[in-house]
Design a protein around this nucleic acid. Sequence first.
DNA 1: GTACAGATTGAG
DNA 2: TCAATCTGTACT
Length: 223
Amino acid sequence: MRKRLKRDFFTQPTLKLANDLLGKFIVRNWRCKKIVGEIVEVEVYKGPKDRASHSFGGKITKRNRIVYKEGGYIYIYLCYGMHWQLNIVSFLKGKPECILLRALEPKINNLHKKTNENFTNRKSYTLKFPGAHGKLVDVYNLANGPGKLCKYLKLNKSFYGEDLTRSKRIWLEDRGVRIKSSNIIAAKRVGIDYAGYYWSRRKWRFYIKNNPFVSFPRLTSKS
DNA sequence: GTACAGATTGAG
DNA sequence: TCAATCTGTACT
């Protein structure tokens, strides 16, 4: 089952959509190949009340204007001058809310077939496969963070405003995976302590329980 | 025009 | 623990 997700999926209320995104597949058409990943970790930004959101206070800028559209568009921006961050605009037109994709479980063709010859199974979480230039790449470190995720999917500024329901180079699919709510962990968002006690402690980061592909952010302060 | 901080990452 | 690297935003 491979069903492309349509507008009605993306216009769901943001917190509901965030939970529904877990287990969905993101597909990137790149040079006649498909780069695929299963979404395993997301984070909600619910402006204009949310102090951590780029649309806090109803602010509209050239950068964030896309989040005022209805759900299904891509909001992508550069962070720290070098890392792209992929967000999916959610909910209704005029509601500036979005969901940051933080980690994917990469789906690589013939992963298991190749395992016998080229893969080395070391510790529990170090599965490796030969990358583009013959170099060994750790699958678990390929898309376990918002910046690395964009690198894996080969995304850049040109995807700003891309419509996930129509685009020929990137879209989302339902492949029949269902994540039970008891297997979804809600946690504090990452890297937004500047938003103050109330907003930074909201548990709007969601990830699949026990999934080894989620990001492991360093603890900068007490959790 | 200028100053500054940031929804991160990988190296030391 | 720290620097890389650039753009939006809020000032002068």
